[in-house]
Design a protein around this nucleic acid. Structure first.
Lengths: 252, 252
DNA sequence: TAGTGGTCTAGACCACCGC
DNA sequence: CGGTGGTCTAGACCACTAG
């Protein structure tokens, strides 16, 4: 029926199809590996690799003796890919540029130090960047870089490459945390993004660590909260996720 | 050195460790399968499965003849787990309740029909739900359910279980799309969420399909733009992601 | 063309756990 | 107990592609 070149592709497509179509609903126990070796006339290894991959994907739950069961779509999981500005511009064909509007090396202040759990007075680089497409401001970024962890940033001017891209290219990271919330634009955002004071802004906060040590924190403000959505993840992909809901100031 | 019970776990931990620690930086070509069978004294199949899994995870890029190369951390990837309110409340120990403030079965109106690519006059269920924690309004949800795809929703009152949870439990889906943006609260949000008119709100839009057929669209307004972040994903997990940036009205 | 990964086989022994 | 998945072997042939 299928013209897929490889047996394992055909087996996989069959199983995924049955699950996605609802033929095999969540909780359904699918045939055993042994049964599938008969159905497809292949060795057990081939079937096993397919089922293991599907389990790694989260589509199946496998237990010895109990068999392979279609997993429930447990998670109400939203995935947002936040664009790297340079890549985004390249793909959309728009002209991208950035402006460094502030660049300071200094001991971290008390408030930020507490927030990032850095020791008081730790040397950090603070960079404010304006991202523009076709000459129009698209986002305003306030970034803090931990110079103890990324010493090479101390003498980088970020002329050709903006800070986020620069870091992404150079510094390996093991953990990251994102938060998105909404605020009303203040005078700074009014000035930088040319939007009215009070208009709603989306704020993306990103913190990145390497083995427990903070590398950088970025706050990116997009034109248009007390509620706050937080996700944790690893570059590996599927890893475990946690979520928090908190308060950001708050009026109620 | 490691006491991991299985050989493939040890191999995998070794490789992941070298990558995460930066010993093997992005672009580095790692030893061939053949070399690893010698290093670990095992068969090629064992090494191959490990490397394939790491490639599926996105940590490696593998090409015949060229070898296995540590992948660049391409992904400026933000993952947000949007809570199911019932689960969230259960975990936090807070008292959750919901109120159905509007429930209408009617032909879809022109604007929504065009947005959701449903034929004019298609029968839909429109439900507005207020989500409360400890008696305080936390989010306001406006949902449209395609009754042609989910006929059983026509007679469901959502008294015990709110619409989102109800659908998640019953209806298998194959694709979903999320968008987050920010708006200034209007009179409706002022009334429902008890927030000041004009204060910034986070809006989560979610659309769900089963095999190309729209099941439901939800707009969830949280207390607290023209720029708009869109992510697409499948319940399988890693799958391919697309992103769009668009405009939502706009003041500039 | 030669080295690499991609796939597959036909076995094997073991760990787990529902019955 | 016995059926299930988990792991591993020692081969094999093939497909791709850098050199």
């Amino acid at each position: 029926m299928n013209a897929l070149p490889h047996l394992h592709q055909r087996i996989r497509a069959d199983i995924e199809g049955r699950i996605r179509s609802g033929t095999w609903a969540p909780g359904h126990r699918i045939p055993s590996e042994q049964a599938m070796t008969v159905e497809y006339g292949c060795s057990r290894m081939t079937v096993s690799k397919v089922l293991s991959a599907l389990a790694a994907q989260g589509l199946l739950t496998r237990r010895r003796r109990a068999g392979s069961v279609v997993a429930a779509p447990t998670s109400d999981l939203a995935v947002m890919q936040i664009q790297d500005f340079v890549l985004e511009a390249a793909r959309s064909g728009k002209r991208y540029e950035h402006r460094i509007v502030r660049r300071v090396v200094a001991p971290i202040d008390r408030e930020a130090g507490a927030r990032l759990e850095l020791r008081a007075g730790a040397p950090v680089l603070m960079v404010d960047t304006l991202h523009l497409l076709e000459g129009m401001p698209q986002a305003f970024e306030q970034r803090i870089v931990n110079l103890a962890a990324v010493p090479s940033a101390r003498n980088e001017a970020f002329i050709t490459v903006p800070p986020g891209t620069w870091l992404l290219q150079r510094v390996p990271w093991s953990d990251a945390e994102h938060a998105i919330h909404a605020i009303n634009a203040d005078a700074t955002l009014h000035r930088r993004l040319k939007i009215a004071v009070g208009s709603a802004c989306l704020v993306l906060e990103r913190r990145t660590w390497q083995g427990g040590r903070l590398l950088t924190e970025a706050q990116i403000f997009y034109p248009g909260g007390r509620h706050r959505l937080v996700g944790r993840f690893s570059p590996t992909g599927n890893a475990a996720f946690g979520v928090e809901a908190g308060h950001v100031g708050a009026r109620r």
